[in-house]
Design a protein around this nucleic acid. Structure first.
Lengths: 241, 241
DNA sequence: TATTGAAGGATTGTTCAACAATTACCTCGA
DNA sequence: TCGAGGTAATTGTTGAACAATCCTTCAATA
């Protein structure tokens, strides 16, 4: 007899994690990790030959990885010059916050229709951050903060917005590396996160959005100021001339 | 004496178009054009050997082009199976409109601070569409409509939003190809465009945003209905099983 | 009849080696 | 100090080769 249970759908969901295999993508994963953890400084040049030899992949495959990361704006590719770790500047910070405002606020404002699981992902991120703070795990606090905003943007349930947001936050983590003292930058925002989550959970998404709007303004200004302080010494953004 | 006119900035702007030379990117441009004009039907497979021979580029270079277009969601890359022209489904239409709502409405709502040139780009797109309609140039009407929404999203002056929007609209044009009769789909929206532009120009951006919100709802429903009608015959979206 | 299993061919994934095009560096000379 | 020129190093692109995987076909079996 033909077995056609509905559990077959659950199998189909796992397909994505199964089919994920490609040397170029795995290499991109490795590089992405190194870049975001700061192992490669912003502005550093990535030699095809050196990295290809180090990772044991051919130049062609490595180039595919570079293209992937270039599209995520973690690497910039200059023709005939090579690929470099992106070095975001003040105008990038401003632009990143423009996009964040558009995506996060509109997701929050339309959150009456958000499913409970999506709201709970926000709560989980809040708790994740508080626990990391208790452990004085600053990197973990930053990661949790990213998860928080990812969850906010994910309230609308849009795969495309999720992906855009992932890229934005990865790029933003680069910004933190350019900054002087990113150590405890995130910590003060934890209580804001909790307040926003509770407003959201208690059915006041508009109030939550207003609160988040302030939040974003303050954070942006803080980053812009930090950039302004070190501007002139190394001209972090834009094309050098 | 050193000549330092301000025209040097205008030269710098042209740098982007000048430095743009890479076989992979040029190939991607060609393919993008063919896909968006419907020369290659959604779902069609792109053979590396055939296309490589036709365009006179090597497989490695062609693969780079495929990756570029894959990131724009015009092609989907299935491991060990090849690349296919994307075949958007209903859920893609819904998601595309989610992102459009977030980006276009928030750009419009914050348009008090938009520079005059940006607003005028919206007006130019409106007139472009009206002229195309007069010539019964349906493809031109569609293009002008894309320019209109691109200009709306561009009111905030964000390069990242501009790029996201470009991709979204390219993907949406693919959707129109999947539809049955895309011929005069855009025409009825021209007067909406004009109304929105005039509200915006006359300093009522919030009213313009409300109008655009309706607009998007109607257009989305129309597309979803069109998909529902042809659903079952060829199952345009998702993974085939 | 319908399903399974095993060749066989075709296509993609990846590597390697080579050469062309361009940039970076270094030296030389004024 | 500045510019010109030449050399070395790096990237851009190609072509061929082989491994891995998928699709098709066809026969075998229940």
């Amino acid at each position: 007899m033909t077995v056609t249970g509905d559990w077959i759908d659950r199998l189909a969901e796992a397909k994505g994690t199964l089919a994920r295999s490609s040397t170029a993508e795995r290499v991109a994963d490795v590089l992405r990790g190194h870049i975001m953890e700061g192992a490669m400084a912003p502005g550093a040049r990535l030699s095809e030959e050196a990295i290809g030899a180090a990772l044991g992949v051919s130049r062609n495959t490595l180039r595919e990885s570079f293209r992937l990361l270039g599209h995520e704006r973690l690497l910039v590719h200059e023709f005939h010059r090579g690929v470099f770790v992106a070095r975001p500047g003040v105008e990038d910070v401003i632009d990143l916050y423009r996009v964040r405002r558009a995506l996060e606020l509109s997701a929050l404002r339309g959150a009456e229709r958000a499913p409970v699981e999506a709201v709970e992902r926000v709560g989980a991120a809040v708790r994740e951050g508080e626990e990391a703070l208790r452990r004085s795990d600053w990197w973990g606090v930053g990661t949790a903060n990213m998860h928080f905003h990812q969850a906010i943007a994910g309230l609308g349930g849009s795969p495309r917005i999720d992906e855009i947001m992932r890229q934005l936050l990865a790029e933003l983590r680069l910004v933190f590396h350019v900054m002087a003292a990113p150590r405890d930058f995130h910590a003060p925002y934890l209580e804001h996160n909790r307040a926003i989550y509770e407003l959201l959970r208690d059915g006041a998404p508009d109030a939550a959005a207003d609160r988040l709007a302030e939040y974003l303004d303050v954070a942006e200004r803080q980053l812009v100021d930090a950039f302004g302080r070190l501007d002139g010494s190394s001209a972090p953004g834009g094309e050098p001339e």
